[in-house]
Structure formats: C-alpha cells, structure tokens
Design a protein around this nucleic acid. Sequence first.
DNA 1: TATGAATGAGCCTTCATTCAT
DNA 2: TATGAATGAAGGCTCATTCAT
Lengths: 217, 217, 217, 217
Amino acid sequence: MRSNRTLKRRRPGTRAADSTRERLVRAALKTLTQEGFVGTTARAIARTGKLNQALIFYHFGSVDRLLLAALDATSQDRLNRYRAGLAQISRLSDLVEAMARLYKEDVLSGHITAVQEMVAAGSSVPALRKEVLARMEPWIGFAKEVITRLTAGTVVDKLVPVDDLAFSAVALYFGIETITNLGGDRGRAETLFATGRRFAPLADALLQSATWVGDTA
Amino acid sequence: MRSNRTLKRRRPGTRAADSTRERLVRAALKTLTQEGFVGTTARAIARTGKLNQALIFYHFGSVDRLLLAALDATSQDRLNRYRAGLAQISRLSDLVEAMARLYKEDVLSGHITAVQEMVAAGSSVPALRKEVLARMEPWIGFAKEVITRLTAGTVVDKLVPVDDLAFSAVALYFGIETITNLGGDRGRAETLFATGRRFAPLADALLQSATWVGDTA
Amino acid sequence: MRSNRTLKRRRPGTRAADSTRERLVRAALKTLTQEGFVGTTARAIARTGKLNQALIFYHFGSVDRLLLAALDATSQDRLNRYRAGLAQISRLSDLVEAMARLYKEDVLSGHITAVQEMVAAGSSVPALRKEVLARMEPWIGFAKEVITRLTAGTVVDKLVPVDDLAFSAVALYFGIETITNLGGDRGRAETLFATGRRFAPLADALLQSATWVGDTA
Amino acid sequence: MRSNRTLKRRRPGTRAADSTRERLVRAALKTLTQEGFVGTTARAIARTGKLNQALIFYHFGSVDRLLLAALDATSQDRLNRYRAGLAQISRLSDLVEAMARLYKEDVLSGHITAVQEMVAAGSSVPALRKEVLARMEPWIGFAKEVITRLTAGTVVDKLVPVDDLAFSAVALYFGIETITNLGGDRGRAETLFATGRRFAPLADALLQSATWVGDTA
DNA sequence: TATGAATGAGCCTTCATTCAT
DNA sequence: TATGAATGAAGGCTCATTCAT
C-alpha cells in the first residue's frame, strides 16, 4: 500500500526541471479532484499529466510526498489569495461577500476539492495525518486573525475564545466541503452563502450595538 | 482496486451465523479506527476479528459492502441513542450537556472515529460517495428535528432556514471530528464543548427574549 | 483449481434422491452450454439448478465427477438415439438425412454443446483427459459399426481401414462443433449438411459401382 | 475469474524489452502444452519462464491477452511455414507428404498442442471465443487456397463448394488434434497420415481422370 | 533529467471442498 | 438427505518503488 511508506526527503536540483515539478503537482491536483484520493495512484497521476511515472519518484521521492507538495502549493496559493481578499474587511457583511467570491474561485479552480481530498486522505492514512494537520494550522491561524479583527471591541471578542471560533470556522468549512463532495452538488453550500448574506447585516448591527454597550460599561 | 467493484447484493440465510456477521462488523469498525480506511483491507479486518478472510465475501460480498454495513449498524445504533438522549431537550443549555455526554460515549466506543473514517472514505472513493451520503442524510434530518424543536416560536425559527442550520450542524460536527482525527487529540473538541456550555445559558436567554419580541409583534 | 483434484469415487444410496442427482446433472449440462466449461463452477451449477452447492459434493464427490456423470448421461442417451436412428440405414444418402435430423435434435437439446464443452475441458484439464477420452471411444466404435455396414462389400471396405474412417468421422464431427461453438453460428454446419445431402446420391452410386467392380474382380 | 475480464489494449514501448515479451510468449506456449489451458495461470507462466508474474500484466495487460498474443505468434509463424511448404504442391500425394512433414514439425515444436489448447479454451471461455475464432479464419482461408489450387479443373472443383471443403479440412485437423491430445498418443494421427499416403496416388488418378472427363465435356 | 522495464508485496475475490447440524 | 457456514488455497491484477540506461 502506497501510503504505508515513510516520507523520506528528496529533492533534486531545482533548476530548469521546475516545470516538470509543476506539471507533476498540477497533475496530482487534477487527479485528486477527478479520481478521489484512492484513485490518485502514481500511474493515474502520470496519465493525467502525460508524464512518466518514475518522475514522481525522481522529483518527490514518493507519491505521498508529491501529494503533500501539491497540498502545500495549493494551500499556500489560496491562503495568499484569502489574505489579500480579506485584508480590508472589517464587517461581517463584507466578509460574507468576499468569502462567497473566494469560494467560487476555489470551486472553479478545483482547488478546494483537492484540498478536501487531502484532508480526507489524512484521515484514511495514519501516515499522512500529521503532515496534513500541519497544513491545516495556517488556516486556523488565519481564521483567528480575521475573526479577531472583525470582533475587535465587541462583546464577542470579550466573551468567546477566538481559538474556538477559528477552529470551528475551519472545521465547518471542511465539513461542508466534505458533504458537498459526497453529494457532488454545490447547491447546499451556495444556499448557505445566500443565507449568510441575508444575515450578515443583522449580525453586524448586533455586533455594533454590543460594542457600544461594552464601551459604556 | 478494491473500491472499483460494484456493490452487489448478497446476504446468506440469517440464522445462527448472525454472530459471525456481527463479529465481522465489529472487526471492520475496529480496524477502521485503528488503521484508517486505507488500512482496512480484507486481510486486516480478518486479522482484527480473528476470522477467515473469505467470510467477508461469503457474508457481505465485498469489503466495501461490509464497511457500509458497519456504517449502517453503527449509525443506526448511535442515531437511536441520540434520539433518546435528546428527546426531552428543549433548551440549548440542556442540549449542550446532552451532546457532551453523547459525544463522550461516541469517543469511548470508537464509533465516531469509524464513522468519520467512512465519511472520509466516501470522499476518497467515488464509488462509495452515494452510499455514504445516503447514510448521512438521517443525521441531517435528525438535526433538523432537534433544531426545529429548540427554536420553535423564536426569531431564529422565523428568520433562519432550518435546513441550513441542520446542514451546518452536521457539517461542523464532522469537520471537527475530521480535524480531531488528524491531530489525534480530543482537546480542541472538548474545549469547544466547554465553551458551548458557558454560552448556552446566554443563548437561551437571547432566544427567550427574542420569542417575546416575536410574540408582541 | 477445481480440476486439479483427483477423481475419488463416491455415490450415496441411489434411492429416492435420484431426482436430485438428475437435477444436478441437468443443471450441470445447462451451465456447460450457457457459461462454458470454465464458468461451470459449483456455484454456477447450483444457481442454475436452484440447488444447494453442497449437494454436488454429497452426490458426486466433486464438480469434475458431476461433469463426467453429466457427460455419461448425455452421451449414453444420445448414443442410444443415434443407434436407433441409424439402425436401418444402408445408404449414404439415408445416412445424411438421418444424421441431419439427429444433429438438429442435438442442437435443439443443447446436448451437443455440452459434450463439446466437455471435450474441450478434457484438453484444458489434464486430469480430465483420460476420463473424457474413455467417453469418446464408444462413439468411435459406433462410427465404425455404421461405416462397416455402409461400405460392406465395396472397394472402400477393402481398401480403407475402417478405424481411420471412424476416427476421422468423430474427429470431424467434434472439430465442426468446436469451430461452430466458437462462432456461435450453426450456419456453416448446416451448409455442410446441405452439401452432404447433395453429394450423397453420387457417392452412393460410386460405392455401388465400386462394389460391382470389386465383385467381378 | 481470470477470463471474465475484458481484453484491454496495452503495449509498452517495443524496444529492448522485446526479448521479455518473447520470453513471456514462449513461456505461455510451453505452459499451455504442459499444464493445459486451465493450468496456464499467470503464476504458472511466470514459473515456467522464470519471470516475474507482474511482467505479464506490464507487457500484455492480462493473461488472456498474453495467451492470445502467443496464439497469434505461433499461428502466424506456422501459417508462414505451411504457406512455404505447400507453395509448390499441385498433387494430393505431394500434399500428404508435405503435410506429414509439417505436422511432425508442429508436434515436435509443441506448437500444435498449444494452438489446440487455445481452441479448446475458446470453447471453455465465452470471452475468448471471438478472438480465437478470428485466429482460425486465416487457416480456413489458407485451406481454401490450397484446395482450390489442387482441384482446379477437376470435377471436385466444379461440384463441391470449396468453402465446405476448407472448413471441413480445418475442423478435421483440430478434431484430430483434440482427440489426440486427450489420448496423449500420436499413434492414431500417424496412422491416418500413413493411410492418406497410401490413398493419395489413387485420389490423384481419380482427380486426373475426372479432369479429362470435364475437359471433353 | 528522463524513461522503459522490472520487482515484490499486497489486494480483492472466487474456488472446490468440508463440516456441523 | 440436505444445508448454511466455514476454510485454505489460489487466481488475476495493481501498487509503489527501484534500476539500468
């Protein structure tokens, strides 16, 4: 079984062959979304990318490490996008808008499915757990930042532990993606965004009022 | 690839051998929690249950079908437990208490990990998706019932679509379990329960007041 | 592999259960024609006859022995039919007619396919060879009888070894069946009969004249 | 069941590894003659050729496809031999001589047994039928050529459909081989050749005279 | 840097057969 | 006489990985 191997380091000279590495990463991501993690074998990846199977091992040492690298790449890329997209946000209603936009990007690019597949893979394969978890942490940290910013000076900020909120936010996000991926339809997720959009203004108002109360106290 | 097979029906006469079926189901569940889905091979299950590998195919026709049967069994069992445990609940604070208790049961029995593994498997293996999803629906339905009961006559009931809440609740639950399973530590989930416990009374009060408001209107 | 086992004797009391034996034999024959020898497993036979798999072993000791018994039964039955059908024949033209009729019977009953499958099986499975061959010999003997009768007093009788003719006749017969079975169409065999029918009178005439010549000599 | 699989195409770059392909083909052929079709498993072939089992699947995709490739190879090879050997033949007596020589070659090389095994396999395994039949057709075509040449200008040519003769010739050939293979002794086949040798001159004379008759007409 | 070939382990599944009832 | 359950062996095939070039 592929995923029982240990994750040994290996990384040949990072010169011109980077394009091959990139092609491998892209192929891995694509295969992940198309075939699911269990279908993402060395052969399948190579087929998807029209590459030689052995290149996976030459460049990444193992399939798992390629997959992790792919997760890294996509995760980094998306995190940057999210940082940029949410940088100026200070109200829930804006947050919802921005998130809806970013989520749509994720869906279209297929990246979210790939990431979700890797999270599921983390469950399925003990050897991957630690590595996958490590790649989730930045997201929790980022969620924390955003939440902190948005709730600064409100009751929420004072009463609710941001850690819990951040953890829950990320968990909810992946939970939704997991079920969505099972059903193959994005309908429910989109409905959720719509609902969120409807309530954001109200929540913003509540947060505001709560802030004043907090201030007078 | 095991999971590429179709899921053919099969079920030999259900007399005395039921205990074998049960042992197989238990072994499958145990293997799922111990080795992860990818490690839950026919051989591994047989080893865990000290059973002959061929029995899996005699009784269930395929590994996937055994796994699904195991999910069925555990899911049914737990759903009953949850129904019973939450039947009398009408306040959030009670809900949190009850959930915390049930969750602890789930953790101790290992059932929650097994279920989570199967949900992840549903992602990883396209052929399993539909089946796993079908087994999630009852939970969403149940969540809807509970939420409906708890929010009856409050603003929430009037404003927020229960479907969205139910879906989110289940997604959050599995999202939390997924990350928890990655980390191998229950700490974060427990912290969450603690936080929930702290806020439930407040939320109850808010719901109540909201109810009055609604009444006067 | 089923067919690697030795053929041990076994035959429980031949009382009322004969009907079960018969059903098994019929099921074996039917499976042979429908699934081919390799598809004729204990399970498949049991399924075809809606019988319990274990009965095969109870009544016949092994799948191979059931198959051989089936070959016996069908072979005996058909040989009787052929004997009866060709008993009064003394001319080639009559022979062709009779054979065409018998062949049609064989085809309709499916028996010929079953026999052919067993002959092929004899090739495929060394352990079956001797047994199958033994069941072919009566046919060669019968062919010899018929040929002897038909050529009695003709040149052919004096010049050509009847053994060779008989052997060739049977070989031709099974050769035709083999190719026919591959193609799934009886067309070629029927064309052959038509041609035979056309030439039989001529051949009869030749034989006759040859007889006279032989007589005068 | 091995033979239930579909026959997928596959053929890796045909450079240096051709010798492995050849070794596989040879091993398959040898196993076929030594163990019979049913005993010709991937493991058995690998053992015979002292090759890694997985090579079969690497190079041919499936056992059945290797077997078919083996049949192709041997069939092509022998057909060429037969073409060459019978190219100059214009009389039955020469034909019998040439055939006897070629047959002996076939027997010694074991090729005829292998082919016969595959023909039997075609019967036994529905999935192989079409493929095996397709590989028989060239032989029927070749037989037609030879028969046409030999009977050109004779009554036979005018009266008997060559198609029937060709079909019968091939059927007889494989029928003989089948029974021979069952018995494990070549005696009967050789006797047949001897008889054929004895009668060929007579038949040639008859054909000739028939020709004259035809001419005068 | 790339590749075709090769390998050993392992997987799911099925088979013939046996056994207790 | 019949049957459901069980078993050990084997089968076809795929996988991750390595190797020689």
